[in-house]
Structures are given as structure tokens and as C-alpha cells.
Amino acid sequence: MIDTAHKVVTSKFRIGNEYPEVSRGFAVITGRLYVPIPIGGEFDWTGGKVDVIDPSTDTGPYPVEFDGGGDSAIDPARQSLYITNFRGGTASEINLETMELVRTHRVGDAPRSPVVDPGTHNVYTSDGHSRSISEIEPETSCR
């Protein structure tokens, strides 16, 4: 944790990842840090979990299972976390209130960098191998 006013590190938190270099795209909301962590080999992800760290109480991690490992984004209004699954061509939607997987959305090949439109709540992924951008409409997409 960094005190931005004084530009100093105030505390450190350990995340449960065998391959920390592939824990990318963590997201923060309401003082909690959400870190997607791939499970399996370094490039052979069989699934994933989310470590949740609450720096004010020093609690966590709380594992939440999802399809793979990748980048993440939060829609604060819907209390939803989206995590891309680079290998599987999906994005997992997790309810932050219940810490449960809501659904898995099909997107293009090798999705990265999810972005939430705060006005529409649609989520966009950059799909590297497809050379496309996918749009997720959370209210209408199915598992």
C-alpha cells in the first residue's frame, strides 16, 4: 500500500500466487483490492481464483473461483468484477457482494484489458488473436 501524499510504502500484502508475474489487472473498489490469480502452470491455466485484500482490517484472501487468469475491471455501480480468460476466450463476471461467479461471457480469442462503460455498464475486451473488440451487455448475456 502506498501513501500517495507522502510517496512512501506503508504496508505490503502477500497474494497467493505461484506465478506473480501473471497476476495482472488487479482492481480496487471501496478500499478493497481484488487480484485475479491463475491456477495451474505458468502458461497452462486450468482455472483461477480472486484474492481479496482489505488493507484496513488486514483480512483476506478470500478465494473465488473463475475460468482462467487475466486482466480485470470493476463496475462499481453493479458491484461486479470482470476477469478475462486469455486462454479460453471468455470473461468471468463475479458479484462482489456475494463473491460468487455470476456467469461466464464468450468473447474473442485472447481477451485482455476489460473496460467498463459507466453509463451503459457494458464491458469491452481487447481480443488480441481475433484482432477485435468484444462487447458484453451484462444484463442480457447468458452463461
Rank of each mutant, 00 (worst) to 15 (best):
M1N: 11
M1I: 02
D3V: 13
K7R: 14
V9C: 03
V9G: 03
K12E: 14
S23K: 08
R24D: 06
A27M: 14
V28I: 15
T30V: 08
T30L: 07
T30M: 13
G31T: 14
L33F: 13
Y34V: 07
Y34A: 11
I39W: 02
T46G: 07
G47I: 07
G48D: 12
K49W: 05
D51M: 06
V52A: 09
D58W: 04
D58A: 02
D58R: 03
G60M: 01
F66Y: 04
D71K: 07
I74T: 10
P76K: 03
A77H: 00
Q79M: 09
Q79K: 15
L81C: 09
Y82H: 05
R87Q: 12
G88F: 03
E93M: 15
N95W: 05
E97S: 06
E97K: 10
E97N: 14
M99V: 04
H105W: 12
H105D: 09
R106C: 01
G108Y: 05
D109E: 07
P111D: 11
P111E: 09
R112P: 08
P114I: 05
G119P: 02
H121Q: 05
Y124M: 01
Y124N: 02
H129E: 06
S130W: 02
S130R: 08
S132H: 10
I133F: 10
I133D: 05
I136C: 07
E139Y: 03
E139Q: 08
S141Y: 14
C142D: 12
R143I: 11
